[in-house]
Design a protein around this nucleic acid. Sequence first.
DNA 1: CGGCCATCCTGCACGC
DNA 2: TGCGTGCAGGATGGCC
Length: 265
Amino acid sequence: MPELPEVETVVRGLQQTIVGETIIDIEAPWEKALNPDDAYDSVVGKTIQSVSRRAKFIIIELEVGALVVHLRMTGKLTPVFPEKYITVILHFRSGQALYFQDMRKFGRMVFTKDPADLLGHLGPEPLSADFTLMVFMQMLRTKKRTIKPLLLDQTFLAGLGNIYVDEALFQAGIQPESSASAVPKQNVVRLHSAIQSILSASIQAQGTTILNFSHGDNQSGTFQAALRVYGRKDQPCVMCDTPIEKIKLGQRGTHFCPECQTNFS
DNA sequence: CGGCCATCCTGCACGC
DNA sequence: TGCGTGCAGGATGGCC
């Protein structure tokens, strides 16, 4: 599934392939992904100015307004015709096209006159210079919420997904059910560092993941191998050999080591 | 405010 | 062998 680093790589690819293209037609075989009636007049005839990312959203800027895309779990944007699961097609004057392929059909593409309307609610970018340790400590101080659902909340911090949160909490020694405001400073320091290092490492490993994607659906790669708790239920902890536990928390599969991670409350 | 639930979809891994 | 069941997941919106 596309995670933040994969979205980042998709954006970099699109910057090379679709900027300058003029959209001459839209097809939406799956209208829930994009309502062509709403978007057609605003999009057709427009030229793509730039492509950027905010959290896991892809922003395709036009002369006026933008197409904002969220891939969710199985969405892909590709110039190569996919045989199955096409939800939206943008046709370009050059003869090229951009295909939105999405097996589970959760992904969405929306035209908006001002992307800020759709993205304004998002919290800070975890890899931005603004997201300092001091800022993070301030953010957590007043939150009585459970730490894992809080980290998944895009209005609190933008871009983390289920896998990264489990991994970051493991690296920081924090049990996922801990109360955010009760986490000691020392572990907040480790968590802040873990979030940034794990995301950075994933961006580095991303090439491999994307390569696997383009070859098919093989998800095994260096990224998968780097996971230390996610998907490792009942397997020995890499640090202490205690079996990894899996629970349900906020409707999410949640993995942790009961020995290495302390429940602060 | 915070937590929990359903919803959207499909493929796949189960168990019998 | 084949069928049914349940699970996975990001984000939203509703409810208590």
